[in-house]
Write a protein that binds this DNA or RNA. Structure first.
Length: 475
RNA sequence: GGCGACGUGGCCAAGUGGUAAGGCAGUGGACUGCAAAUCCACCAUUCACCAGUUCGACUCUGGUCGUCGCCUCCA
C-alpha cells in the first residue's frame, strides 16, 4: 500500500484516489524565462517517479504540469516586471518567443533525463478566460475586492489561510522586507488580477480593464479545468508551500467550497556547499552544461540516490558514484543479453519475487528511491552470482523483465547504451572480434594497444570467457 | 523574530523501539597473458552532544550545539 507524506497533515498517509482507478496529479511547472538547472531536474525527476510508480500500481493517472509564461513578476507577487517580458527585453525577442524558446529547452532537458511528458502542459497565457472566470466567482462570493484597477483576494474572508504552511496571521514580518502594495486592505492579501500599464506588453481585457493574472491564479484555474475541483495530488518545490500553494488553496477552496487538494507533496532542494541552488544566489548548474560532463542517466541516478524530501548536496563525487552505479546496472543488463521467453527456474523466480517485494516496500514508503535502489543492487549481486553458473534462457529472460520493469519503467533509468546503437554497435562487434583474434594468436602487445586506443576513444574492452572480447561505449 | 527540516563509516545514503540496508571509494583474495568486468572477504561495538522514559533507543521525551530552508522571485 503506497503511503505518501502529505505536507498538509505532516504525516505519511495511505494513498487512495478519490475515484479509483483514476488519479489526478498536478505539479507546478517551470516559468519559462531561462534554461533548466539541476534543481528543476531533481524536482521533476521526483514527480516523474511518482507518476511512473502510480502507473506501475495500475492507477490511471492524468498528469498535468503547467508552463508559466505570464504573470510571474520579478519582485514580490504584486510588484516588479513580468519575468518573461524582462527576458524578452534582454534578448530582444517577443515575450512569447522567449516562452517558446525556453519551453523547448525545458522539454529537451527533461526528455534527456528520462522524464515522461505530462499528459497536459497547459500554458498560463492560454487560459486567461478560465482565470478571469475564477476571479469573477471569487468576487461574487465576497472573497475579492477591487482597488485601483487591481483585484485582490481578501485573506480575512478565508479562515483556513495558513494551514498548509503553519503560518498564522501575525507570524510574518510584514512591512520590513516586503513592501506591500498600497492599495491592499491587508498586507497578506494577494493579487488575483493586476491592471497593466502601457509598458506592460502581456495584457488582456477583463471586467476590470486591461491587465494580467496574478501568479497564483493560473495553477488553480488550470488544475481545476483539467482535473476537477478536487485533485488527488498536487506537487511542487518546497519553496512554493508559502505563499504560492497557500494562495492556491485559498482561492480555489473559496471559489468552489470544496477541498482543493487531497495530498500535498513537496520536494526538497538541491544545495551547493550546503546552500540552496537557486537563481538568486547564482550558484546554479544548468542541466545542459551538466550533460557535457555527465550522461543524463548518471544525473538521474544521482538524483534518485537521495530521497525526494531530503536536500541533495551537489558534488562531483556524488555524480562519479552514480556513474559507477549506473555502469554496474548496465553491465548486468548486458550480461543478461536478449534471451527468449520461457519458464524460469525456482531459484530465479524466488529471487525475482523477493526483489520486487523489497523494491515495492521501499517505494510504498513515500517513494523511498534510495531503498528501492538498494534492493536493485542486491538483485544485481545475486543475479551476477547466478550468472556464474548455468542459467537457462528463460531464467535470463525472467531476470531481464524484472530489471527493465523496476529500473527502467518505474525509476526511469534507461540501461540500454544508446550511444553505441546502430552502426557503431556493429563496429564494436568487429573490433571485439579483432581483439579476440589477436589474443588467440598471443599477439598481446597488439591486442593491448587496441584496447588502449579504444579506451582513449571512449570505449571499454572486456574479455569474455572463451577468448572473445566485447567492446562497449563508455558513459 | 515566526514557521519548518536535518545532523548515521572516507564520501553519498536508508533505517524511526529489539540491537546499524545499499552505493561509491579503499584493502586482501579468486578469475585473467595483463587488465576490465564479476565473485568472495574485510571496512560504524556505533548513529552530533547531554539527560530522561524503557528489560532494551539511532529510533520516544526534554535540553544543548551545529547546519539548512521558508517568511521577496526561485523546482
Amino acid at each position: 500500500m503506497l503511503s505518501l507524506y502529505n505536507t498538509m497533515t505532516r504525516e505519511k498517509e495511505e494513498f487512495t484516489p478519490m475515484n479509483p482507478p483514476f488519479a489526478g496529479v498536478y505539479v507546478c511547472g517551470p516559468t519559462v524565462y531561462g534554461h533548466s538547472h539541476l534543481g528543476h531536474g531533481k524536482s521533476y525527476v521526483s514527480f516523474d517517479v511518482l507518476l511512473r510508480y502510480l502507473r506501475y500500481l495500475e492507477y490511471k493517472v492524468r498528469y498535468v504540469q503547467n508552463i508559466t509564461d505570464v504573470g510571474h513578476l520579478t519582485d514580490d507577487a504584486d510588484a516588479g516586471e513580468d519575468k518573461l517580458q524582462k527576458q524578452a527585453r534582454l534578448e530582444k525577442l517577443e515575450p512569447m518567443e522567449v516562452a517558446e524558446k525556453y519551453t523547448a529547452s525545458y522539454f529537451r532537458d527533461m526528455d534527456l533525463l528520462g522524464n515522461l511528458r505530462p499528459d497536459i502542459s497547459p500554458r498560463a497565457s492560454g487560459h486567461i478566460p478560465e482565470q478571469i472566470e475564477l476571479v469573477k466567482t471569487l468576487f461574487e462570493k465576497g472573497h475579492a475586492y477591487e482597488a485601483g484597477g487591481n483585484v485582490y483576494f481578501d485573506v480575512s474572508s478565508f479562515p483556513g489561510y495558513g494551514r498548509l504552511s503553519g503560518r498564522t496571521a501575525d507570524d510574518q514580518r510584514t512591512g520590513t522586507r516586503v513592501r506591500s502594495a498600497d492599495d491592499k486592505r491587508n498586507p497578506r492579501d494577494f493579487a488575483l488580477w493586476k491592471s497593466a500599464g502601457e509598458d506592460h506588453i502581456l495584457q488582456w481585457n477583463s471586467p476590470w480593464g486591461w491587465g494580467y493574472p496574478g501568479w497564483h491564479l493560473e495553477c488553480s484555474a488550470m488544475a481545476m479545468r483539467y482535473l476537477g475541483e478536487t485533485i488527488d495530488i498536487h506537487g511542487g518545490g518546497l519553496e512554493n508551500v508559502f505563499p504560492h500553494h497557500e494562495c492556491e488553496i485559498a482561492q480555489s477552496t473559496a471559489a468552489t467550497g470544496k477541498e482543493f487538494v487531497r495530498y500535498w507533496m513537496h520536494n526538497n532542494m538541491v544545495t551547493v556547499d550546503g546552500r540552496k541552488m537557486g537563481k538568486s544566489l547564482g550558484n546554479f548548474t544548468l542541466l545542459r552544461d551538466l550533460y557535457q560532463r555527465w550522461e543524463p542517466m548518471v544525473v538521474r541516478l544521482y538524483i534518485l540516490r537521495s530521497h525526494y524530501r531530503s536536500p541533495l548536496d551537489f558534488s562531483d563525487e556524488g555524480l562519479a558514484g552514480a556513474k559507477s552505479g549506473l555502469e554496474r546496472l548496465i553491465s548486468f543488463k548486458s550480461r543478461l543479453g536478449s534471451p527468449e521467453k520461457g519458464s524460469a527456474s525456482e531459484a530465479v523466480l524466488d529471487l525475482v519475487s523477493r526483489t520486487e517485494t523489497d523494491f515495492r516496500k521501499a517505494m510504498d514508503d513515500d517513494l523511498n528511491t534510495p531503498g528501492a535502489l538498494a534492493s536493485l543492487f542486491e538483485y544485481v549481486r545475486a543475479g551476477n552470482i547466478l550468472l556464474e553458473g548455468e542459467l537457462s534462457e528463460a531464467d535470463k529472460h525472467q531476470m531481464t523483465v524484472l530489471l527493465d520493469t523496476l529500473a527502467t519503467d518505474v525509476l526511469g533509468v534507461q540501461l540500454a547504451s544508446e550511444s553505441s546503437g546502430g552502426s557503431s554497435e556493429e563496429l564494436c562487434r568487429i573490433l571485439g572480434e579483432l581483439r579476440g583474434y589477436l589474443r588467440k594468436n598471443k599477439l598481446f602487445q597488439e591486442a593491448d594497444k587496441l584496447r588502449d586506443d579504444l579506451s582513449n576513444a571512449g570505449f571499454s574492452v572486456r574479455d569474455l570467457p572463451g577468448g572473445a572480447s566485447e567492446v562497449t561505449a563508455d558513459l
